[in-house]
Amino acid sequence: MAFGKPAAPARRFQPFDLLATLVAVVRADGRLLFANSALEDAMGTSRRTLEGSPFGACFLEPGVLATAIEGVRDNDFATLRYEAFLRRGAQEPLPVQVTLAQTDRKGEILIEMSPQEQQVRHDREERLLGLAQANKELIRNLAHEIKNPLGGIRGAAQLLQMEVQARDLIEYTQVIIHEADRLQTLVDRLLAPHRRPHVVGDVNIHEVIERVRSVLLAEFPHDLEIERDFDPSIPEFRGDREQLIQATLNIAHNAAQALAERREAGDAKITFRTRVVRKVILNKQWWRLALELHVIDNGPGVPDDIKDRIFYPLVSGRESGTGLGLTLAQTFVQQHHGVIECDSQPGRTDFKIVIPLP
């Protein structure tokens, strides 16, 4: 009987291991009773090593935690929240938002720590999701408002062309027809991701990348190096293969075009890197596993004036660009419950596609 008692708290707190946030349970004296697996990973220390020791020692300012524990223990606060830095051995301290609350047992205090960078990422994902929904409605409404008068303009130009005799006037009507057709193509591209059904099947992400790679090499056969850094353990998953090919191609093609100067210099490079990450939150949903696909180039980087708007429709860093490639890519990835993030500076731009795995 005595041998089984120490394991009881671990069993009782086991559901905390499913959380992506860092969770600790301490006694009223501040000594650690339980640490979840996310906290173990963040600190690089096993829970067996941590349990029973003063948890305040894990922070740069242990006195602040001691005061907070005392306030919650004495019912001065039902819940208390503050910002702190969590020690991580030889690594840089981790900035976290600390929340303390009592458990359902007297003398136990629950401490939840949310890494600040994780919170920032969640906020960014939420903004991107809201932006995508707003863009979707805007594009649909705008495209339909354009389509009807556009058809009338083209039809009127065709009728006018049949009536006029002067060659220069015919050329004017041809310009009207040509430009109306160009706008029609643009509108169709805007509406394409919302019209096409989501065709789900088994997807091998490396087959997707190989397809994109072959397209790039066909267009840039001599002056572009493409490196593959694959994790072969990534399983197949259910998704729309063609959408993922198009999303990856849009990103990679943008990168290849941004590498114009590097291609002339002979050192242009794009890297496709795949990895598996664990315990991620995407669009407010927790996933045990997720795929990370990085498309990395050594180009000049995304211009500073559009960094915050690159996923907006019709925003482009190139004069000849339509500004639809990244918007469509983000739409396709979000249809797979994922997200695209961008980290860019001169010499290295990394577009990261994150998609949950079953």
Rank of each mutant, 00 (worst) to 15 (best):
E117Q: 15
V120F: 08
R121M: 12
R124M: 10
E126M: 10
G130F: 02
A132C: 13
A132G: 14
A134L: 03
N135Y: 01
L138W: 00
R140S: 12
N141Y: 04
E145I: 10
I146D: 07
I146Q: 08
K147Q: 11
K147V: 14
N148P: 03
N148L: 06
G151V: 04
R154L: 06
R154A: 03
R154I: 00
Q158D: 09
Q158P: 03
Q161W: 04
M162Q: 14
E163K: 10
V164K: 09
D168C: 07
I170M: 11
E171L: 09
I177G: 05
I177V: 12
A180L: 03
A180G: 01
V187Q: 04
L190F: 02
L190Y: 05
L190W: 04
P193Y: 00
H194C: 05
R195P: 01
R196W: 02
V199F: 06
V200C: 02
G201H: 03
G201P: 00
I205E: 01
R211S: 04
V212P: 00
V212D: 05
S214Q: 10
S214E: 05
L216F: 04
L217S: 11
A218I: 07
E219I: 05
E219D: 14
F220W: 12
P221E: 04
H222D: 15
D223W: 11
E227K: 12
E227M: 13
R228E: 15
D229L: 07
P232G: 10
P232C: 11
S233A: 15
I234S: 06
